[in-house]
Write a protein that binds this DNA or RNA. Sequence first.
DNA 1: GTACAGATTGAG
DNA 2: TCAATCTGTACT
Length: 174
Amino acid sequence: MTRGFYTKPTLEVAKKLLGKYLVRKIGKKKLSGKIIETEAYLGPQDKASHAYQGKVTPRNQAEYLIGGHVYIYLVYGMYWQMNISTGKAGRPECVLIRALDSNLGKIASGPGKLCRYLKLDKSFYGEDLTKSKRIWLEDRGIEVKLSQIRATKRIGIDYAGPYWSKRKWRFVLW
DNA sequence: GTACAGATTGAG
DNA sequence: TCAATCTGTACT
């Protein structure tokens, strides 16, 4: 996948990521899975985003990078979440990868489990997906029809209030 | 320096 | 339904 794919509007990227393959190389082994669930977080306006109101911290600065970079962080002190930054540089927008469909079953059926399975941690912070040799995305020619994409409300952000928690910015491949 | 909440998960 | 568990952030 090239840079141009990631710099499109975030909601568009979130939908187009469905059906693409996430590839992770560990030593001589290659792990991969089809992306089946994503969630969009839209910058300063989104109360559920870490960059709400344009906040910049050492933790979320990767969210401001130009599309195609990894924004990874720890939640609840135990689980890593992998995001892909989207849009232009300076825009705090990203897509959270929530689930992969792999031949190993439901091992990556949630953001925390996904990262545990792929052995992702802080060393991937800010990794460039268009250049990295240990993690990248592949288009394997799977055609995703609009009727196969289901939009639902996002998970685990009720604290952001009913308006933002009800935005249907979670996309599931049906 | 200390307090506190969280983009989850798995067990009960 | 609810606790585990720890980092970053916002205070004093």
